[in-house]
Nucleic acid binder design. Structure first.
Lengths: 163, 163
DNA sequence: CGATTTCGCTTAACATGTTAATTATATGCT
DNA sequence: AGCATATAATTAACATGTTAAGCGAAATCG
């Protein structure tokens, strides 16, 4: 049930140590995410939308409208990528972009009725896939993992290079 | 100490449910990984190497030589990306590519002495950063998280779409 | 008020992610 | 051997990641 894995380290010429690549937080997070996304990708592809576009309109579905900075942060997308994506999503009729009347620098992005309709359609499959994942992992264990990931976030974010 | 977070669900018109985007496994894994990588990026950038290139030569440092398929799998890089990267890394003198004498389709990629020297230099900083992360998270908690991530991998990989 | 600085977003340039199609080689089958 | 199929890698085309630079609007400061 529990796995007592190898915490092996590689001895390098000069004496310092390097963790085995496979057993490393960046790789482990990446591989776990790929395993999860492999289950969503068919549904995303069938709906002719990318993973990132899906995140963006889903955030907008929750918020209704948001400025580009907040949207980028919530969707985990860098500003340059978001700029390009907004054109695509606007051309598809899922969002509308307008200037903030209070602040001429900001852009306000809102989801359209068409965008909401798309979410309503696709989220059926999405929810089913997520339920399947939850069943495979166990609801409690999944919640625990989400807590741990949030712990990592809280612990590593902000304080730049102390210690 | 423990966080009792919201497991809120969004009610959608038609009655089915969609988990809040923030509290979702793909996003949580992505955000956690970004928090981790933010600590490595300065070091990678200072050494003028990308995150993916670093993974590739590090894998080769561990294996010595490998065919492209295994290398791509271990480094979590798709074949088309690897093809492009190999040119870059070969031009920089970190690797050498040769055809497999037994199988004309395969390519065998090996790390060079120069590549090893690069790892030896850069891995000092890398190991220091990883140690800092381990200290911030706690060694035990980190190992536990790695185990959980491996559990996700084992549970979600392979069996394509069974219940 | 005007100059400077900061902020929000965009553009540019290059690297990688992603899927489909292609090529060359191996393998299986008869 | 001859043919169909499978495999390994590549190419193509488009989307996104990543860093730096650019630009207009807003805030700040003297």
């Amino acid at each position: 049930m529990e796995q007592s894995r190898n915490h092996r380290k590689l001895d390098v010429e000069d004496g310092f140590e390097l963790a085995e690549t496979r057993r490393t937080l960046p790789i482990a997070l990446l591989r776990a995410r790929e395993a999860v996304m492999d289950r969503f990708r068919p549904m995303l592809h069938a709906n002719d939308i990318t993973e990132q576009q899906w995140r963006v309109i889903r955030i907008l579905f929750e918020l209704g409208e948001a400025d580009a900075t907040k949207l980028a942060e919530l969707a985990c997308i860098l500003p340059p990528s978001l700029t390009r994506m907004l054109r695509t999503l606007e051309a598809r009729g899922f969002i509308v972009v307008r200037k903030d009347p209070t602040d001429g620098r900001k852009s306000l992005i809102a989801i359209t009725a068409e965008g909401r309709a798309f979410i309503n359609l696709a989220s059926r499959d999405s929810a089913a896939i997520y339920a399947q994942i939850e069943a495979l992992l166990g609801a409690d264990r999944l919640q625990h993992l989400l807590n741990e990931l949030e712990f990592v976030l809280d612990r590593l974010s902000g304080d730049s290079l102390n210690l």
